[in-house]
Simulated assay, not measured.
Amino acid sequence: MNAYLIALSAIVKREALRFLHQRERFIAALVRPLVWLLVFAAGFRAALGLSIIPPYQTYITYETYIIPGLCGMILLFNGMQSSLSLVYDREMGSMRLLLTAPLPRGWLLFAKLCGSTAISILQVYTFLAVAWAFDIMPDSPWGYLAVLPALLISGLMLGALGLALSSLIRQLENFAGVMNFVIFPMFFLSSALYPLWKMAESSPLLRDICALNPFTHGVELIRFALYLKFEPIALIWVLASTAVFMGLAIWGYDPARGLTRRKG
């Protein structure tokens, strides 16, 4: 057990040091959601009127509605960015050295996942602090504490998705296209920017696709937690998706069956 904890601590520390040396990554992670919050929301406010829907008890502004979705955006983009570093490490050879450690490969990937998720949560709380400065906040300050488990679980799910994708990509140049193919459909086909009932008014099929999107359930888990409420269906979806994505990542990095062996 001591060896497992040492490996976990070392990998998380490595992720933290890499993050500290890439400050532009921290700024970029905040610019994207802030542009949506301060610019796009102003234009969408009139077009997307919102009714009273759970977990809200009264009518809310559009800026208030999209805060959980923008938190999910940070987790999603950072999860993909972290998996990009895995592709780079694999090309440089350091990833192969890591995976030769005498520990289960799943634990090494989980340690990598924990490091990237911790950084994502730090970025989300920084964004929530900026939103609070613009007077956009949950009803109770306890919501900032209650949302932590939801951020952790959703961050692990999206980070595991990034790990699974990185196991399928052989060259760094191909990663940008795969990211765009995954990130934008997941983000826009979700409840991050508009409620599902609004989507159903124009296309019931798109509404059903959004309802099956794991990112939607991650966003709803965050949304309900911010308002001190629990959404069990969203939790089940997120946990199940995390298990599937992590299983795919472990399979992909298995040299006996995955594409890592072909790369070598």
Rank of each mutant, 00 (worst) to 15 (best):
R96T: 15
Q22W: 06
R170Y: 14
L212G: 14
V12Y: 01
I11N: 02
A234Y: 04
P195C: 04
N78S: 11
D254G: 11
S203G: 04
G218I: 00
F215C: 07
D135L: 14
G106Y: 03
E15S: 03
G115F: 01
A160Q: 03
P55K: 00
I67R: 02
F134G: 07
P55H: 04
F181T: 09
F245K: 00
I52L: 10
M246W: 03
A118R: 01
F181D: 13
V130M: 13
I119H: 02
L172F: 12
L8I: 04
G49L: 07
G93W: 05
L50V: 02
I60Q: 06
G247S: 06
M1H: 01
P255W: 05
G43A: 09
F127V: 08
L168I: 04
K112Y: 11
L128H: 03
Q171V: 12
L163G: 06
M157S: 06
R96C: 11
L161K: 01
V31Q: 04
V244D: 00
E63D: 11
A146E: 11
F19E: 12
D254A: 10
L163D: 03
A150K: 00
S203P: 05
L128F: 01
M179E: 08
G264C: 10
I67D: 14
V182F: 09
G252C: 10
E91P: 15
Y144H: 06
I52C: 12
Y65Q: 00
L259F: 10
G49S: 07
I222Q: 09
A256G: 11
L228D: 15
L113E: 02
I153E: 15
Y125M: 14
Q81V: 15
R32I: 12
W107N: 01
P195D: 04
R18D: 11
L86D: 15
F175C: 05
M1F: 07
M80C: 10
I53A: 15
G177C: 04
A160I: 09
T126A: 15
L48K: 03
Q22P: 05
F134A: 05
V35I: 15
A41S: 14
L151K: 01
L86N: 06
A225H: 06
E201A: 08
E63H: 06
Q81W: 13
F230N: 04
L99K: 02
R45N: 15
I183G: 05
V35G: 10
R257P: 13
T61M: 12
K229D: 15
S82H: 07
I27T: 05
L151Y: 05
Y4S: 02
M1E: 10
A111L: 04
R45C: 14
L17W: 02
L84Q: 08
P232Q: 08
A249V: 10
A16G: 04
I66T: 09
L189Q: 09
W237T: 15
G162H: 01
V130N: 08
D254C: 08
I74C: 13
E24C: 03
T61I: 03
S190L: 10
A240E: 07
W132L: 13
G159E: 06
G49D: 10
Y59M: 06
G155M: 02
L38W: 02
T126E: 13
Y59Q: 05
I183N: 10
L38M: 13
T64I: 13
M186L: 15
A256V: 11
P55F: 06
G79K: 03
T260N: 05
G106H: 02
R257G: 12
E173W: 08
L8C: 02
I183Q: 04
